[in-house]
Nucleic acid binder design. Structure first.
Lengths: 232, 232
DNA sequence: TAACTTAGTGTAGGAAATACACCTATATTC
DNA sequence: GAATATAGGTGTATTTCCTACACTAAGTTA
């Protein structure tokens, strides 16, 4: 790093892969572009970083504009900086991924400029994406696959109270493989990071399952040891 | 991402944490700054990204200018973009880390502008670093600690032919803990990614150890399963 | 040839991962 | 209210991996 800052018109953007889990399916939020380049293509939501905001703040701004939510689980993924990744000039983008809780209602911020353009897409049936966004998505999926096997990020995709089957479904959707029910429960309960509630699932047309909560306190205590989830 | 690219003078840099392993000690390469800001401080080697080079190319340029080497194991680490991380303006930096083989001879490129300013520092006795470089270093160390436990990056720090004790020393230095010799050897040989050579260590004043090579072919075959090294 | 230094080796116990199938509870339907 | 349908919930035996642990072998030097 030298002293005099060079002047050169480089542009930063932030793009965000926003994951949600709905009806047993892992989905991401895409925007339909209505401008060139890539007009009418689907793209990851993104924006240009303002001179007075940090990159993290930029990423939070995306989420807030789209969903109205803040305090979302979010993490930087990778920075994509090929010279020709944007057809109109040099744009370096810092990619983030986020995990959000879908409640089944309308999740999009009603005042957002994106409100009519953003839709959830199952990750297994994604359209072609603008720019290098398919690559960014691939990388984000690899990242959460790896991460879910040693950190409790699955809970970020579920409501506060959830059943063990729902939890297992998140693991199966992200890892895209079936897990054994008994082993899953045994392992998960053994970690001691779930709190069993005195409460059952409601509104199902079959035997209701027990609800659980993720116990952040207990997790924090165990944090040093780092869990090793779901090797099978 | 919108259409019209905004004009705003943001500056990108690349900074690189370059790891080497010498005399049983893990070291990084630091530059002594002779300019403001942070004149006379130690800093990670870095440079500004040119308009016509990708970020990866920028990182390679650092390594090449410093060491004259190319084809080095290198990976993007994280992007640091706080508004005030550089006292003279907005500079976003993409950090990389690299692992290089030290042969004990002079490792610095003789024609480099850095030739007289770069020195290896043991990671356990680092000085304070300029900018947020201490933070970058911490993050790089976390990254290689995690990575070495599931990917064979230790070999990148060793000469092509090495002894099992040398290999164990790399693991111990990165994980900063002692490992059991018998268990280490058992596990390492079991993976089947080492080729035993018909050759012994030379120039030692005690019983010479067998030399091994990392067998990239065999590793590629096993790659799917992803090894899980050194949990103990 | 004695002494020093590192190389190199095996086993037993415990913990964790895996494979595997049936009964139970509740809601719905007839 | 009996039958049916659906998901909930549970245990054990096997294997694999991790861990702890100490001595002999080989080569070098004095």
């Amino acid at each position: 790093m030298q002293t005099a800052l060079p002047k050169f018109d480089s542009v930063f953007s932030v793009d965000c892969v926003i994951f949600g889990f709905e009806e047993g399916v892992l989905k991401i939020l895409l925007i339909e572009r209505n401008e060139e380049p890539f007009k009418d293509w689907w793209a990851l939501p993104g924006l240009f970083v303002a001179p007075d905001e940090s990159i993290d703040e930029g990423a939070e701004r995306i989420l807030n504009e789209l969903t109205g939510l803040s305090n979302i689980y979010m993490e930087q993924l990778y920075t994509f900086g090929d010279v020709d990744r944007h057809p109109e000039g040099r744009v370096i983008t810092v990619a983030y991924y986020a995990l959000i809780r879908l409640s089944g209602k309308n999740e999009l911020h009603p005042h957002s400029r994106y409100a009519r353009k953003a839709f959830w897409h199952p990750v297994n049936e994604l359209p072609k994406l603008a720019f290098d966004h398919s690559l960014i998505f691939e990388k984000s999926l690899e990242k959460i696959r790896r991460r879910i096997s040693y950190q409790p990020i699955a809970f970020e995709l579920l409501p506060e109270k959830f059943t063990l089957t729902q939890l297992q479904n998140v693991y199966e959707a992200i890892l895209s493989k079936k897990l054994d029910k008994r082993n899953f429960r045994k392992k998960m309960l053994n970690y001691g990071i779930l709190k069993e509630l005195d409460e059952k699932q409601r509104g199902v047309s079959y035997r209701a399952a027990t609800l659980y909560k993720f116990d952040r306190r207990k997790y924090a205590k165990l944090f040093q040891k780092e869990l090793s989830f779901m090797k099978e």
